[in-house]
């Protein structure tokens, strides 16, 4: 803990498919600033798209909280998707490849998990759902603009 610190948190609403596009753009921008490479950015933004859509469609909308992480030289991004929808009754089932309740190919949650390094679900029926993920830039931070 001594050498890690968190900076400010950005909170974005997820209420429509326009919001999904906005969330993707914001995440890509922050990830690029933190030094995520192109492939890593693409993986993270794709995972975010899956999870934000899950919040929108299954949770009836909600929000995402985005926090930059610093651990020594490592840079990362934590995203928490929260909704107050019906909750997930069977998390194991929801995490199964091919399991779908609607619009996608059933790869949403299970696929998103494979695209990030940390993944956790907190949900129970009637209590809403929070899905928290984190990804770390495996590449090196972009050289900062030299001060002065």
């Amino acid at each position: 803990m001594q050498t890690s610190s968190d900076t400010g948190t950005i909170r974005l609403p997820i209420g429509s498919d326009v919001d999904l596009a906005w969330v993707r753009q914001q995440v890509r921008q922050v990830a690029a600033e933190l030094g995520f490479g192109l492939v890593q950015q693409t993986k993270l933004v794709t995972a975010v798209s899956e999870l934000a859509r899950n919040t929108l469609i299954h949770g009836g909308g909600g929000q995402v909280e985005m926090t930059a992480l610093y651990r020594g030289p490592a840079r990362g991004l934590r995203l928490a998707f929260t909704d107050s929808g019906p909750g997930i009754r069977d998390i194991d089932q929801a995490m199964t490849d091919g399991y779908t309740t609607g619009s996608g190919l059933g790869m949403g949650l299970s696929g998103a998990k494979r695209l990030v390094q940390e993944f956790s679900i907190d949900s129970s029926p009637g209590q809403g759902t929070t899905i928290t993920v984190a990804a770390w830039a495996t590449g090196l931070p972009h050289p900062r603009a030299e001060a002065g």
Partner: peptide, 14 residues
Amino acid sequence: MRPAVAITLVELGL
């Protein structure tokens, strides 16, 4: 399809 998109899709399982 861009390389980064192809890599991600495969990892996603699609």
